[in-house]
Design a protein around this nucleic acid. Structure first.
Lengths: 341, 341
DNA sequence: AAGGCCTTGGTAATCGTTTACCACGTCCCG
DNA sequence: CGGGACGTGGTAAACGATTACCAAGGCCTT
């Protein structure tokens, strides 16, 4: 059942049917009604591929993330999809697990389906593979790591804003030995978080003991290992800041195993504010980087580029703020309290 | 850049280029090589929409789930997508949150994109909305709830298998008062789990005290509420089985708040074996329903239907077993132990 | 040596839309 | 009363692939 069938039954031409379906205002309302009736009756849906072929617009965006089973991403996917549907777009999802092979095949799939734009929310370092997209002038939006070029937008995360709040919060609670468990430092986003931490500490004249800076891998297991390492120190930290929530969850778990009470004996701060954070025991104090907002900014960036006819020469920059969310995994440094007595 | 461009540069016809791209064996190898070279050089990708239009095959499957932020689903999505890509299929993802409006719009989107099949992994009750798919003879695969019709496959979950193991496990640990926290009973899958529990209990001559059967809602909050209710009983249960893992996690959390030690004072069993289960404190004993396998069966069911020219008159049935996974949230009933001494 | 078969590659129709262009009718105005 | 302007709706050419059909050439057979 195609547009011709509808045209025949409504005794109009296919052009008119097309105009009715696309709500072109010049068509006579009576005739439109007649056409709509036939469409309803037969349950006709226009064929998107034919439409895309002739219009040159697929109405598909690509969404590349690193791993859907990482609790950080599902909400992004959900919000991105919801907004896309509102704008009558479809999304092509791809988890790459930071694997260059899969990354390449994703890009290829997206090119074959003629996506109109790609959001790369991997926090990674895979830009080289995106060359193919770039030569075809497909709009791209990156987080943190994109180059400055036409058709490339960037969402810069203001890590410092939230991390500074967290550091000052811990300082206010009389913590003097604050550890930082980073992510894999080859990831720019992980490096940026660490640097924001160091800077926040220096700002208020606190030292960053290098023994208290350990590299994790953004997994719970990595968090447990890092926590164990820090607890084995003769001069233990009283607070640990983590580069993401999964790491913090690992820290909480290891602490529990070692009978260290949070927040009484150890304060923990996470980063991301994944939904799980509020469900921990105790609920995790963390720095929020709104996944919903990130998804929305990414979508809007692509939409803006699609509607632009000439690109901004250096792409566009967007900023996402981060903010501390106080819950119950941080508390007064108990040693300091004693001394104060 | 299209197939004509390639044809011109390789000095062959478009038919030959198409044959080369599709690896039709009758084409002269030298000529094929020449064509491939041009393709590589120009970085040509065939246009999927044009291909789909003429071949009548979109190579897209729809995947309808209820909520991607529910930890049960990401792994399904991941596996389904990975398999799809291997078979050169793309997926159209849709979270419906059990909302009939969204469900309807999903189905519409899928029809417009001419999906070749739809996997409905919602454990819900939205069949009526799928009528549109059915009249177009689009293959569908359901979990539990699908009707027996041509082009409709069903994956029957063998709840009894795993639940029986769990009940017998608890009985062996000398538990006599075993509670069951169900899901929303309007969900067939939740009802089926409860029934499997009752049957397993009766099989070994244990009574199902109705005070110990409470209805939850498959969320953590629901689990906490149900747990509170059960703990307020004068004659408390010593073990709680939950209709899903999120509920069990709620139970663990509430128990922790009320200073009830798991497994020493209370045994807890979940259902689903989401990844999170093994990361609980203590790691959660649960009944595994393999998400990876579910995804694989769903995909295979669709593929089988796509390749079939005439449908099986009553669709096809698949079965997925469930199995108990022992971890550390279950232990000997301490009251019974004392009595035994 | 001529006819038939096989291999190989080209021509052109087709898929289901959109849309530029054109034709027709009506209305108004000079 | 004739003609331009305007409002409508139809005709047909795209979009970029696939593939049925056909033609040309080479080889074998009698």
């Amino acid at each position: 059942m195609d547009i011709r069938e509808i045209a025949k039954r409504a005794r109009v031409s296919t052009a008119t049917v097309s105009r009715v379906v696309n709500r072109v205002p010049t068509v006579n309302p009576q005739m439109a009604k007649r056409v709509w009736n036939v469409i309803e009756e037969l349950g006709y849906y226009p064929n998107t591929q034919a439409r895309a072929l002739v219009s040159g617009r697929s109405r598909i965006f690509g969404l590349i993330i690193s791993d859907i089973t990482n609790p950080f991403f599902p909400e992004i996917v959900q919000v991105f999809e919801a907004i896309a549907v509102q704008h009558r777009y479809e999304i092509l999802l791809s988890s790459t697990s930071h694997d260059p092979k899969r990354m390449e095949s994703s890009v290829r799939r997206m090119l074959e389906r003629r996506v109109e734009g790609v959001a790369v929310l991997t926090f990674g370092m895979e830009e080289p593979l995106l060359e193919h997209l770039h030569v075809r002038e497909v709009p791209i939006v990156f987080v943190d790591v994109g180059p400055q070029r036409p058709w490339v937008s960037n969402i810069r995360i203001d890590y410092l804003h939230g991390i500074r709040q967290a550091v000052q919060h811990l300082a206010a609670l009389r913590h003097e030995r604050i550890a930082f468990i980073s992510g894999p430092l080859k990831l720019k986003s992980a490096l940026a978080r660490q640097q924001a931490f160091v800077r926040s500490m220096r700002e208020i004249g606190m030292e960053c003991d290098s023994a208290l800076m350990v590299e994790g891998d953004h997994t719970m297991e990595g968090g447990m290992a890092a926590c164990a390492k820090l607890l084995s120190l003769s001069h233990r930290p009283t607070a640990m800041m983590c580069s993401n929530d999964m790491t913090a969850i690992g820290v909480m778990r290891k602490s529990h195993e070692t009978h260290i009470a949070i927040p009484h004996n150890l304060s923990v701060v996470g980063f991301d504010d994944i939904r799980l954070a509020q469900f921990m025991i105790p609920p995790l104090t963390t720095i929020q980087m709104s996944q919903a907002e990130l998804a929305r900014i990414a979508f809007d960036a692509l939409m803006a580029d699609v509607e632009r006819e000439t690109p901004a020469p250096n792409g566009t920059e967007y900023v996402l703020k981060t903010n501390l969310v106080l819950r119950q995994s941080t508390g007064m440094n108990s040693n300091a309290t004693k001394r104060a007595k």
